[in-house]
Structures are given as C-alpha cells and as structure tokens.
Nucleic acid binder design. Structure first.
Length: 772
DNA sequence: CTCTTTTAAGGTACC
DNA sequence: CTTAAAAGAG
C-alpha cells in the first residue's frame, strides 16, 4: 500500500470514521482527551492525499492562533513522514538533518502555507484585505484595505470619549465598559445601530444605541474595524455582494471548524453562507466535492459571556445534516474514548456533568485504570490553602523523581486568587502565570504599534493621539484639544491638520514647533513604508521619536523591562518576515493586532503553571490542583440565581477536572479575605455533586506540611557562580558573577537570548533550579 | 504642562 | 487590600 495512507491506522474506529469523512456535513462530538486534534489533522491530511484536494481549497478554523500553529506543525510532520518513507524508505527522524529540513520546507511550500488555517479573526481579516473596499455599511460608509484593527482598550477609549465628550453624559451612570459590552453584544447578534435602537424601550437603551451609532462613525472615520467587525463585516459583505460570496464559496470547498461549541451566531452565519453560497433551500445544496466538518463538545462550552452559543452545535444536524437520531445518523461521530485521565477522575467528571440538562448524551470512556485518590482539602483561609498546594507539590516532587515542576498546574476561577499562591510559591517553587497581561497589551508595545499604524493608515486618529505626546514632547492637552476640535470642525482626520504646517502654526500657538517636528517625523517615515523592511522602520521610528531614549533615561527596572519588550517586538517583526516571506510593514501590522502573547514562552518550561480555568481549556497536566471551591467564588456569585449560567460554571468545573491525567487535588477555605474583609465561606455545591466514594476528605492531610523546604530553597543567600536559576520574568538563567555579600548581595545572571542582567535576589522573584 | 494625591472598582478572555 | 486612572496642586 502507499505510504501515504497508513497514518490512518493509528486511529481508533470513531476517529477513523471522522478522519476519512470526505463530502457532506459531519459533526464530531469530541469529549475531553479523546484525540480530536488528531482526528482533525488526519482528516486534513487525508483530504489532500487520498482525495487530491488542493490545500488552498481548505478553510480550517481554530480557536486560537496557537492551536493553528500546532495543527500546521502536526500536518507538516504527517506529510514529511510520508515523503521520507516514499522517497527514502526510511522514517523522517532517521534521515540526515539537512534532508529533514528540505522535506519540511517542501511540505511547508506545497501544503501548510496554502492551507487557510487560523482563527475566525485572522482568516477573515485576510479576506477583508482583499475585499473590504467592496463593502459599504447602512450609512454608506466605506473602508480601505489598509484598515487598522482596534483592540478592546482602543474600543473602550472611543466609547468613553463619546460618552463624556460628545454626549456629555456621566460616565458613572453610563460606564464605558458596560456600554462597550452592550455594543459588542449587539454586533454579535448582527444588529446595526439602527436595528439595535428599534429594540430599545427605555432611555438607557436609546442612549446606548446613540453611542453605538457614534462609535461606528468613529471607526469609519479612523478607517478602523474592531474585533467584532472582522466577523460581522464579511458576513454583511457576503450578504450584499453575490459575486464576492460566490468567489469565496468556490474557494473554500472543505470547511472545518474546531471548538464549534464556542462559535457565536455571526460566525455560524458566516460558515453557513460560505457552505451554502446563500442558498436557503436545503434540497438545492450540492455536496459534491464539498464538506462542512465541525468538531466540538457542548460540555466544554465556557464562553457564553462573550456570546458563544453551544446550541449552534446542538443544532448542527438540523441545520446541515440529516437530523436523524444517534443510532441512525450519518452526520455525527462521537469520540468518547479518553486517553488522558485515570478512570476515577473520569468517573468523577462524568458524574458531575451528568447533572447538566442541556447536552448531547455522552460519557468519557476510560482507557486507563484507577489512579491515586482524588483528595479534597479544607483550609482555614486562602493562605493556608496556598501553603497546602506548595507543600503538596514539594512532597510529590521529592517522592517521585520522574515528576518535575512542569507537571503541575494550579487552576482557579478568578485571577485575583493567584496572589496568595504566588506568595506561597515564590521562595521555593518556580512558577509561571499563564494568561495575565498579554505581550501585545503592554503599553510600550501598543505605543510602538501606534507609531507603525500611523505610517500605513494616517486616518487612524486613535493611534495618533496615543503617541502625539509619547514620549513627552511638550504637546499638552489644550493643544491637542484645539487640533482635534479643528479636525472635527472640518470633518477631516486629525492627521490632515497636522501635516499642514500653516494650520499647525495657526492652531497650536506656543506648541506649534513641537507639533511640526512631530509631524515631520511621521511624514519622513511614511515615505519609507514602501521601500524599507518593517524591522528597520520600527527600529528607526522608535529611536528617532526619542521613545527609546526616554525609556533609557528613566533608568528604572520597569523602563528597562519595557526596552526589553521593544527588542522582543523587533524580534517578532523579523520572525514574521522570515516565516511569511513578507518584509512589508502592512503585512506585519495586519498580523500583529491578531497575534496572541509571546509570553507563553516555550513548552516544557520547568515551572508550575498557574492559570484560570478558562485558560486551562485544551491543556493537560499529570497533577492538577483545583482551588477555591466555594459557593460564590466557584460557582461565581453572579451565576447563582441563573440556572443556565450555573450550568456553565459546572461545565467549567468539568473542564478543570478533565485536565488531570494522574492526580487531582481539590480545596476550599473556611473563610476568605475579600477586598480587605474576612468573609466566611461555604463549600461549593460542585463538591457535593462529585461521587462521594471517589473523593477523600476529612483525613489528616496526605502529607504533613514541610517547614524547612526542599533543596531548591533560596532562603539563605549562599549563591554560587554556575547556579541555574528560574526568574519569574526572564526565565531560566545562570549566575555568572556575585557582587557584595550578606544583605548587599547582587547577582549577575545570564539569560539565554536576553543577555546578562544584574539582579537583587531579595527583590526578584526567582528560585534556584540547580546548584553548580 | 507635569507631578502628586485622590478615588473607584475588582468575573471569566479569545481575536 | 490593591491597582489604575482621574482630578487637583505646583
């Protein structure tokens, strides 16, 4: 047989049914840990190899950029492996390195690069870079293809400005965050400002409608779209322009959507339009050489607060499929074998989720035997709880040489809970916080990107205002207000005023010189956009603008850190240019607004992971701590009186439990400090919903607390040159010098890729990993 | 115009 | 209690 199809033999029968699916609709109900990524990647490989589908005719939607990257990687390996077998009769890893690289790059060129794989947002942003100029909104407003993408904070500042400046309303009564949320919801229901207003019965609703109206006008004036628009605008465009829809319908013959339970109405409409070409009569659909293949698990739907609607998944068979019941249907496959968790953990999870009402009947079937007991710890307060986690980890590591820090994760409901844990772990255990502040949300990164955006999209006033006085160049609020006022008066973008020296001199008065200098800086670099690679433009403008110098002069640790991050941004630009064979500034910018954090560093980091339950979706760890199981915290207080919301909390708990491979620890406290005050806590209802016989409680702790911790301690400062350490921010490093002694000891530490830094070990959060 | 003091708000988060 | 953004003082 050909070497190309034997990869399918690695699948179980249900996975194989999914992977071999060719045309028509198919819903894959994939339980936690059931190998759904495998089914998805193998199906894509099979479409290309077996059915000779051209990769550029495949649209594969993932939930995150990271998922897309990993999936491409896995597909690449399948193909490279097949080619190695075919050409050399050997496994890929046995070939010389140069040969491996060559195969991989060939696969990249012919398969993974032409594939349309990514998130809804990145894929449709890409489509808008082709076709946005063909779109017109209800008010006849238009955008151009070099549009800016505004993130949540950009959007909120626009809303705030409308509320306080344009409508002169009290931003306490009309909280910009709440209003922005309402607008986002409206957009995700596909409501235009006009349609939204029609639904509003009261004053508040009409005010929000007015803000929405103004907000859209502002986006258009800035030639910008927000994240919601990246989905909504293509949907509208497809609805209003038959030939545009027809083009993409023809392009995307095979559509795959991962995490289908987390899609919202607009995303669904988009998929529906592309699949059916806007044809509403089911009998007219032509499934020859065409498929829609969705994978999801209603039990893991945890994003309804951002408009995800898992009933879309429940309705899939009615919408696209044959609508037949489980036993007869040909349009649904269930993946129920779980390859991840111990049987007792699965039993607990199954029992818990069974108490939800709205779901597709499904159980996780164990493939692994019983493991250690699930243990539940009752702590006095959150400090004791954190200490319990710390002691437990130290003991487990001591007793099991095969366990390292990276095998543990601590999961909690709210970010605020991480503090107590950090305090408890800091001195003994290296940890990373997953999530938290994203790289692209950092101030210095947003400023640098604002400089770049202005160069490609001068109409982007929001970015312009961000940097007009950053670093301080003596352009104050009064001057800015005057300039903005003049622009509004004339109905032109702010930049149109700034670029004209005469206007600036008239309006800006004393600050005119500063404004003109700024304006000339921008103009000079705008001329370079087409000629210079993005990396050079970035370097040039952050240096010439004085931003780098300003940070250097501050000399604080914070400023140094910001400089490091700017260097990291430069690296990101270079990396983008390399990976995409595209050195243009536009190319990089289009991608940057949608990129997720570089923070997550490399995999296999030697550190315990701390994260919210939401961030934990899709991950797995040998040992899981699920903490803060208290009524009002988890389930969260705002969900207690809403049955649907409570079910979502239960799904969240289910997600947490099913992350564990070997061992699961639960904990709650007797009282918890909340905003200063101590509040008594009630155990979470979810604890009672777990099978009693599987959860061990009320015995003396499995391990007695260790007071003098393991050899990894950094309590006394007997550091020596050559020690390997883990630093919270910089990662792993090696001590190269020691300055001073006793209380005044400072360490020089070399971090790979970051260079050498001098650090005070009593201030920095760092731990020794290995003594020299 | 910039630096310091005051005030408010704190659920989860992908792009 | 903590942190960040807004108002008030130099």
């Amino acid at each position: 047989m050909s070497a190309t199809s034997d990869f399918l033999t690695q699948l179980n029968p249900s996975q194989r049914r999914a992977a071999e699916h060719f045309c028509g609709p198919l819903l894959v109900v994939a339980g936690a840990g059931s190998g759904k990524t495998r089914a998805l990647t193998y199906r894509i490989a099979n479409l290309i190899l077996q059915h000779k589908v051209n990769p550029e005719n495949i649209l594969a939607v993932t939930f995150t950029n990271k998922a897309a990257r990993e999936m491409k990687e896995r597909i690449e390996i399948i193909f490279a492996q097949g080619m190695a077998q075919q050409k050399h009769g050997q496994r890929l890893e046995l070939l010389p390195a140069a040969e491996q690289t060559q195969l991989r790059s060939r696969v990249y060129k012919t398969v993974t690069k032409p594939l349309w794989m990514g998130t809804f947002h990145s894929l449709f942003a890409r489509i808008l870079r082709f076709d946005l100029n063909k779109y017109e909104d209800e008010q006849g407003r238009q955008w151009t293809r070099n549009f800016s993408i505004y993130d949540e904070s950009d959007a909120q500042s626009i809303v705030k400005n409308i509320v306080t400046k344009q409508l002169n309303l009290d931003d306490k009564k009309f909280n910009p965050r709440t209003i922005r949320y309402a607008i986002s919801n409206a957009k995700n229901q596909g409501l235009s400002p006009q349609n939204y207003e029609k639904e509003q019965a009261n004053y508040r609703g009409r005010v929000i409608a007015e803000v929405y109206q103004q907000y859209q006008a502002q986006l258009a004036a800035n030639n910008a779209l927000d994240f919601d628009d990246l989905i909504l605008v293509p949907t509208r465009l497809f609805q209003q322009n038959e030939s545009v829809l027809g083009y993409w319908h023809k392009q995307f013959r095979h559509i795959l959507v991962d995490e289908y339970q987390d899609t919202n109405r607009i995303q669904y409409q988009l998929i529906h339009l592309l699949t059916t070409n806007g044809e509403t009569r089911k009998s007219e659909w032509d499934w020859r050489d065409r498929s829609v293949f969705v994978v999801g698990d209603a039990d893991q739907s945890i994003y309804s607060f951002r408009m995800a609607d898992f009933t879309i998944l429940l309705d899939f068979q009615e919408d696209f499929g044959d609508g037949l019941p489980d036993d007869d249907t040909r349009t649904m496959v269930k993946l129920e074998e779980n390859y991840r968790s111990r049987e007792n953990i699965l039993q607990a999870a199954n029992h818990l989720i069974d108490q939800n009402t709205e779901r597709i009947d499904k159980v996780l079937k164990p493939t692994r035997g019983f493991g250690e007991n699930i243990y539940c710890y009752k702590a006095d307060d959150e400090l004791v709880e954190a200490k319990f986690v710390r002691n437990q980890i130290l003991n487990l590591v001591q007793q099991n040489p095969e366990l390292d820090w990276g095998n543990f994760a601590i999961l909690y409901r709210t970010n605020a809970q991480s503090r107590a844990l950090e305090d408890a772990l800091r001195s003994d255990i290296p940890y990373i916080i997953v999530g938290g502040l994203k790289f692209y949300d950092r101030k210095e990164i947003k400023n640098a990107l604002a400089y770049l955006r202005i160069l490609t999209n001068p109409a982007d006033t929001v970015s312009l205002l961000r940097i007009i006085n950053t670093p301080r160049r003596g352009i104050g609020q009064t001057t800015i207000d005057n300039l903005v006022g003049a622009a509004q008066e004339l109905g032109v973008p702010l930049w149109e005023i700034l670029r004209d020296e005469t206007s600036v001199n008239t309006i800006a008065g004393r600050s005119a010189k500063a404004v003109t200098r700024f304006s000339q800086l921008i103009q000079r670099w705008q001329e370079q956009v087409e000629m210079m690679p993005a990396a050079d433009i970035l370097q040039g403008i952050i240096n010439e603008s004085g931003y780098v110098e300003d940070l250097q002069n501050q000399g604080t640790d914070e400023a140094d850190n910001r400089l490091e991050n700017l260097t990291e941004l430069s690296n990101a630009v270079l990396q983008f240019a390399e990976e995409n064979e595209d050195t243009s500034l536009e190319g990089f910018l289009a991608n940057a607004s949608l990129a997720s954090d570089l923070d997550n560093l490399e995999e296999g980091q030697q550190a315990v992971s701390l994260m919210t339950l939401h961030s934990a979706k899709g991950l797995e760890f040998p040992v899981i701590f699920l903490i803060g199981l208290e009524q009002g915290l988890f389930p969260h207080r705002r969900t207690l009186d809403d049955p649907a919301a409570l079910e979502e909390e239960r799904r969240l708990c289910y997600v947490g439990v099913t992350r564990a491979q070997e061992q699961l620890f639960l904990s709650y406290t007797r009282e918890r400090r909340l905003w200063g005050a101590r509040e008594p806590a009630v155990p979470s209802q979810f604890l009672k919903e777990l099978p009693e016989e599987l959860v061990e409680t009320n015995v003396t702790p499995v391990v007695s607390p260790i007071e003098s911790p393991a050899p990894t301690s950094s309590h006394n400062s007997n550091w020596s040159v050559g020690d390997r350490i883990f630093h919270q921010t910089f990662g792993e490093g090696e001590i190269t010098h020691i300055f001073g002694s006793g209380k005044k000891t400072n360490l020089a530490i070399k971090f790979p890729g970051l260079g050498q830094k001098i650090i005070d070990p009593r201030v920095a959060s760092m731990q020794r990993i290995k003594s020299s």
